[in-house]
Design a protein around this nucleic acid. Structure first.
Lengths: 207, 207
DNA sequence: CGCTAATCTAGAACAAGTTGCAGACTTGAT
DNA sequence: ATCAAGTCTGCAACTTGTTCTAGATTAGCG
């Protein structure tokens, strides 16, 4: 396993130790505040205070509240990916394994609904200035799903199916978080969309 | 056709003429400002000024910026539904007709990308306090899709497929608006998800 | 018409995200 | 150790969504 620092996967000047520590403190404070009151509870002044950093510094690390929360999501996703790797899903078909994986992730989020709320709202509220970071989150999600499918070289069809699954995942999460859908409904919809996998996989085989 | 006033489809005290006029002026100003700079350009003070209404009054009509934009979306959706009714899609299968309908809607939004941005961002950013209004938008979208399918009594399976399509539609729209996906990709994904329709329809026939 | 309750207006005030600035502190190179 | 460049801090100011208030206006009613 490479010794690469945890989160900032690339680019720009390397951070000193104290800077890494600051960054971690900030993300930790962000997640903690979010776990309480969700998006609104993550107030930049409070994050700064909690992480013992000046407001200006906070903004130097994360140029906006949305950037901060998307970075928080990246961190959580990495954590989750690690967890999922340890206990891979057991289903027989790719569709089952993906659905199982997503529902497992879903239950994890259920335990911290406020945190989930903050992260997902930030993700969909993000404008172009956050595109690179949002894209990174999306790529990470794709990796998780492809992992569950156990696929090495997905076809274009399959990639499209994976994107659709991601769309459904995000959007279903939002409707659940805002109380407009039950968990049962989310489960059904996840299972429904996962059938696209079998569909496209069957076709890949007969090509 | 019933003489019911245009937008507020139900509930609460009926509005006087001048009040209806105010409401329309507000929604018009909102859409106009949104058409320029998107979500950020819709500033409550400006909306109030443009529609010749005091700020307090604006807040009496729409309790928050998000409420206002979701209502704006309702109005636009109604308009679009009317337009679509006039020229129903021509495809042979339900899936084709739905995909065609959505892509048509998509092209309409393309013409006013800022407006689309404002409305969709508001929709996904909405918290529980806006649930009823967001739900209304969702129901309207469902009607449009079922219309395109030409279905009277959808099964639970089919309703789930429709929900998944809506999820995909919203989420794909967002990724396009924030420049993370091309139109071609959106088209492919819409077509991919629409295949769920044929799938569930085939099953309904053999039940 | 004249009254009352509801509504509307103008504008101040408050909250939270964001920016700017002057001075202290760190870092890295010499 | 010293200097220059880059960072961090504390704090004030600005922006925009939201709330509040006091005084007009309007609507409905006898």
């Amino acid at each position: 396993m490479p010794a690469e620092a945890s989160s900032a996967s690339s680019s720009s000047p390397p951070l000193t130790e104290r800077q890494e520590a600051r960054r971690r403190r900030i993300l930790h404070a962000s997640a903690q505040l979010a776990s309480r009151g969700g998006f609104d509870a993550v107030q930049m002044r409070e994050v700064a205070e909690s992480s013992q950093v000046a407001l200006g510094t906070l903004y130097r690390y994360f140029p906006s509240k949305v950037h901060l929360l998307v970075a928080t999501m990246q961190a959580q996703l990495e954590h989750m990916h690690g967890t999922l790797r340890k206990k891979p899903p057991q289903g027989d078909t790719a569709a089952q394994r993906v659905a199982e994986t997503l529902m497992r992730a879903f239950r994890a989020l259920q335990r911290e609904p406020h945190l989930a709320d903050a992260m997902v709202r930030a993700l969909t509220f993000a404008d172009r200035s956050v595109s690179p970071e949002v894209d990174q989150v999306s790529r990470q999600t794709t990796v998780i799903i492809l992992d569950a499918m156990g696929l090495e070289n997905p076809t274009a069809q399959q990639l499209s199916a994976v994107r659709v699954i991601e769309h459904t995942w995000h959007s279903a999460l939002i409707t659940w978080l805002s109380g407009r859908a039950s968990i049962a409904q989310v489960k059904i919809d996840i299972e429904t969309v996962c059938r696209l996998i079998d569909l496209t996989t069957a076709e890949a085989r007969t090509e």
